[in-house]
Structures are given as C-alpha cells and as structure tokens.
C-alpha cells in the first residue's frame, strides 16, 4: 500500500503541501492580506479569467516574487482550452 501511495501521489506529497501553504502564508505576511481576502482574490481572478478561457480552478498557483526593490504577485493559471 505504502509503495503504491508513493509511486502514484507525487503531487500530493507533504513537501508540496508545505510549499503551497508556505507560499500562501508568505503572501499574507508580506502584503498583509488575510487568508480570506486572499481566497476571495483568487476567486475573483478565476472568475475574470474564466470569462475568456476555461481554467483549471484547482490548479491555480499564486506566489510572491521578491526583487530588489519591490514584490510581484504571480498567478499561474493552467488553461484547459480556449473558449469558442
């Protein structure tokens, strides 16, 4: 069982969970957005983008990039297909 779990669920490994949680926590720490506001923002972004393209909601990734002088919010939204 253990072996199968390890082979098949690479994406859900605790490392990825840690990384994802950390990215969310840091967005909150750095730009003082509460987890709720963050979730709302995520929802809003998705609703805007999905007007034009079909996106995979669960795969949206957000992170903060720190450069020398400022910070940038990055959203990575996998697109399923183009809407016709």
């Amino acid at each position: 069982m253990n072996i199968i779990k390890k082979l098949s669920f690479k994406e859900n490994s605790s490392k990825n969970v840690a990384k994802e949680r950390l990215q969310f926590i840091l967005i909150h720490d750095r730009i003082k957005l509460s987890p709720r506001e963050l979730a709302e923002m995520k929802k809003d972004i998705i609703s805007v983008v999905s007007k034009y393209v079909d996106v995979d909601e669960n795969e949206l990734e957000m992170s903060l990039q720190r450069t020398e002088s400022n910070m940038a919010l990055q959203a990575n939204i996998p697109i399923r297909s183009r809407r016709n």
Binding site: K6, S13, S14, K15, A18, K19, Q23, Q65, R66, T67
Partner: peptide, 18 residues
Amino acid sequence: MVRRGDMMDLEDMIEILA
C-alpha cells in the same frame, strides 16, 4: 525525506525566500 517528497528541497526554499 526530500527524496520521498516529504521535505522541501533547497530549490523550493531558495525560490520562496529569493
């Protein structure tokens, strides 16, 4: 643990902390 995917690796951390 990193190999098992149960610990963040260096790349993950450097990417996050920049």
